[in-house]
Design a protein around this nucleic acid. Structure first.
Lengths: 217, 217, 217, 217
DNA sequence: CATGAATGAGTGTTCATTCAT
DNA sequence: GATGAATGAACACTCATTCAT
């Protein structure tokens, strides 16, 4: 009888759990949305799944966000903002040798890279960048460009202090962090089939970038 | 022939051509599909758009592929297969010094990276990998793993011949090509806002990886 | 309330009412579905038509049923269930002569046969049985088999009490109700061209089955 | 590697089996169509399946029939036509006693009932009658009405010759064959779950219809 | 504020039918 | 005549969004 009439468990009708903190709602939805978007991409993510993850119903989302796209953008933006800023100061006020400074910066980068959020933003940029160019621009302006500038500063500092080779290609500082970006991509894709030993990899990165491959003549 | 627009009642409804392309169709559809999937991802791509790009109607696709997923998988697979194999031989038979070999391999990598197809496969792996793990596994097994092995071989060769430092971290060869992967990602995302000078970047990559950052003591 | 036609901008697009009928909806949809399925068969019935008959839109059906097949099965099942049970008791507790009992049972059968629902289930069994064998099995087990058993009981009772011929073929009780089944089929098919006088037919059925054709020797 | 590109077995391209007799084509298609329609109904039958059953391709059907509906109607009609006519003569020229005549007619009916074609036409009438009333009318006019008339003739003959009860309800002759119709329906539906012993059933039918249920007083 | 039933605009897929070969 | 590639009009089903409660 009634093989499968979906009927949301009748009897559960009572007005039970009124939401805890109303203040937290948008943040919870952003959290839930980001998780879903990162996992499935914009198009494949269902509002219903976001709602379920935030433990509300679909309609509730529309009390806080105009539509799916608005939630997506806010979610991504909210995660981009606090990313680089904290590293900024580190460079300005550092007074040790530049090699140590670069090691510290790379260390920080790997720690962030392992952190889910940043990796996930990277995936979203790659996946959805074509459809949301403002987000890419925003991410670039607020994070990537700043980071790139920082690296240039570090390279120049090293050269000026005679610690780094004078003929370094300072205009292409991304090369220096390239292996870390590659590691982030690897973890997003091939890790299940060929797991990356982050510690060993990070050490190899620092070793090769600092010392190069060639034997000392 | 077969390309002619029907001409009866000129000025009427329009160019309703029926091309007969049995042999060519699957390849054309794969091409069109790959372009759309790469641009928009699996979920956001409409069969109708793929069809339009291949200049057929939606239903025609189903003459050649069971469904959207089948087309997607075949398209991706068809692009993965011919990727690495040609480089393989280069390494085995090379008899110059290892630095030159590595330069050659990196050069080839950058040329491929600029090539649309490979970059595009990378984007698909990152975007859709979670939903199509078989594809990631396939790509890893047929391309990435082989490439990684090649790099290890090259590093070992350099060490054995005394050309490379004896204490190189040969177990993390991805570090060596990391900057190139980062460049591919960059081109997929930030290039419109901050274009990459591939030549300069590639040169910087080779320079830094081979020589490192530090000044010779 | 809930039945009111929205009135803003009178003369505009029309009566777009949103009724909230959580409780009643499944039953309404089953009713509408059964009517359509019985008329056109499973394949030829459009979800949109079912929806229209229930005064909702197509998507609404999927709030209550997984798919067309699920709605079909539930609709058929829901109509099969309450069919025979009421007759069951009649036989067990009857204490008049068996001829009267049989007349009563046949009378009930004709009344049910005229009843749209049962006839319609019969049509569905014949039309769709091949594609939905579980339904046929279910109908047989819950209705036909029970009815058949009842008839056997009646025949035996008549024989035991000396009312019926001792040499009756009690193993083929369907023969006794066969003319009623034929009448149901007739009404489903030829009635428009050659209408059946149910009363006269039922009387003839009872007459012939009880007395036979042959003149008393 | 081409997981599932459908590609009709390349190499089988040669112009092999040119159809045997062109004359037979329409008949073969009608045969194939009838079989499919009977099994699945009009809507659920695919032209492709009919074609496959007749060992031609889909397009070929349209050389002989305007469309699906035309094929359906012709198929049904072609099977209706030769049905009753042969029995007609039997009645006119019979000179034995009427009980034997009726036995003979019922025997013939059961033989036909077992015969796939007639049962199958019955199923089609029940399933598709609502959508193809002309066919029902045609079937009724050419088969059912004639048969009904024959039965009336037989009943009258029996009464006139004093063989049958004088007060038989001659206006409802369908009652007499009702059990046979019920048997046909049974075989179309419940036979897999509760098989009918046709011989025993037919004997019971004849027995009960001729002698009735009541014990001779 | 929150709910969740209902909507309606798609999108993937099927299939009768056409037509160049 | 026969083929089978291609078409295009449906149709089942999904899901972002709305809105009465």
């Amino acid at each position: 009888m009634g093989e499968k009439v979906r009927q949301k468990e009748p009897g559960k009708t009572g007005p039970k759990r009124r939401r805890r903190r109303k203040e937290a709602r948008p943040a919870e939805l952003i959290e839930a949305g980001l998780a879903e978007f990162a996992e499935k991409g914009f198009a494949a993510t269902r509002m219903e799944d976001i709602a379920a993850r935030a433990d509300v119903v679909k309609g509730t989302i529309y009390l806080y966000f105009d539509n799916k796209e608005a939630l997506f953008k806010e979610a991504v933006r909210s995660r981009i903002e606090p990313t680089i800023t904290d590293v900024q100061g580190m460079v300005d006020s550092y007074d040790g040798d530049t090699e140590s400074l670069l090691r510290l910066v790379l260390r920080t980068l790997y720690d962030k890279l392992v952190d889910n959020d940043v990796r996930v933003i990277l995936r979203i940029m790659i996946s959805e960048g074509a459809r949301f160019p403002e987000l890419v621009e925003f991410y670039h302006a607020n994070t990537v460009k700043i980071g790139k500038g920082m690296l240039t500063t570090i390279l120049r500092r090293g050269i000026e202090r005679g610690e780094f080779r004078a003929d370094l290609p300072v205009n292409e500082p991304i090369v220096v962090v390239g292996p870390a970006i590659a590691a982030a991509i690897w973890r997003l894709t091939f890790d299940p089939y060929d797991p990356l030993d982050i510690e060993a990899y990070a050490a190899a990165h620092v070793d090769i970038v600092l010392n190069g491959l060639l034997s000392r003549r």
